[in-house]
Design a protein around this nucleic acid. Structure first.
Lengths: 203, 203
DNA sequence: GTTAGCATGTAAGGAGTTACATGATTTT
DNA sequence: AAAATCATGTAACTCCTTACATGCTAAC
């Protein structure tokens, strides 16, 4: 409840721990393999985050039955999501705001779309598309305000940037169309996850 | 001399002020039009940065001859690069290290390639390409370690991420080839910039 | 004369990052 | 027994963001 601002890492950790309990080192690898293209976190980021989540009661240290009562504990510590943690995760995934479609957050939110309700998924996809289209408009406007004469490199950067963003918009369009075909009310996971996910691509 | 870590904003401000003196508000617009696709800075970031650069003597308030001696100064303040500022800019642009090819820095450094020496340009382009290829290897390796079964959305994110990065690598390849054709020792600008930049694309 | 845009700032704080430090376990 | 890699942490710091606050200037 205490108003700590999310940040990508918290969501990512909760999301991954929802799949399975894990210890820090493993978690980091999984983290960077899921989000590898967008971000990479170090231990210096992860462990403080785990500590904080623990303090908030969103995760707990697993106590395996036949475990070792290490006194001078410097052994594996397996974390699992608590009930509050699951709640918090669902809460974060249920919010379709800027945090979910800005550059920082989008990747992580998308990665956990499998646990996200269909209407939220749609709102986030559309939100991101609008955001990118605003950006396109902005840059295009700036370019036609031909006052600003840019050198060849800056121009090339613009060109490449535009192309990349246009490409992402097309991708989003496909995803949105795909989501619409599947109709609303599709949500595969959330609690007990069975294996029956859609076929070829996404839709 | 004091070891303050660069940060994108400092370089961007110095680079833009090198083109022409400007006041804060204008600077910010120019900033966001040049880097619009990658980042957007607010006044809350810009003004403190200007203040700091001023303190370091890298920029100075322009004193136009027929200017207004505003006492309760809340009027335009035009900043220009000092000699130290130009030196610092050349210094920053002369460094071909991680700061120049990681996600954060690359865009800005590239935007000012017009003021960067040919060999540094090459090192930065190649540095970024290596960095991206590492990332591709990492993610591909993680994917073939098929232990990790990912749901459809995570997979789609991976696919799109891979494609984007591959695309950027191809772009870098073209640029690198282009740079090689122009031969080394090309540097258009730095001080008095004449208009004779290359033709069609970049090379 | 009031909305809209130009123009300049500050205080508080957040989300990580960097650099360092150390122990445990497996491989060679 | 040395080297590599697994595993966990902390102190200090940084770059930037958010939210707020204010005044000037042009357009309608």
């Amino acid at each position: 409840m205490s108003s700590r601002r999310p940040g990508v890492l918290e969501l990512a950790v909760l999301g991954i721990l929802h799949e399975a309990p894990m210890h820090g080192y493993e978690l980091r690898k999984r983290l960077n393999s899921v989000l590898g293209m967008f971000r990479a976190f170090g231990y210096g980021s992860l462990y403080p985050c785990l500590k904080e989540l623990l303090r908030q009661g969103l995760i707990a240290e697993e106590t395996r039955p036949g475990a070792k009562p290490l006194a001078g504990r410097k052994s594996k510590i397996v974390y699992r999501l608590t009930a509050e943690g699951k709640e918090r995760l669902q809460d974060l995934l249920g919010q379709a705001g800027p945090a979910a479609w800005e550059d920082d957050g989008f990747g992580v939110h998308f990665a956990f779309f499998g646990m996200t309700e269909a209407d939220i998924r749609m709102r986030i996809l559309e939100g991101r598309r609008s955001r990118l289209e605003e950006r396109l408009d902005g840059v295009r406007a700036a370019m036609s305000r031909t006052r600003e004469r840019l050198d060849a490199y800056t121009l090339e950067l613009q060109r490449h940037g535009l192309e990349s963003v246009e490409r992402e918009v097309r991708w989003l369009n496909e995803l949105i169309a795909s989501e619409r075909k599947s109709g609303p009310a599709t949500r595969w996971d959330a609690e007990g996850h069975e294996e029956g996910s859609p076929g070829g691509r996404i839709g």
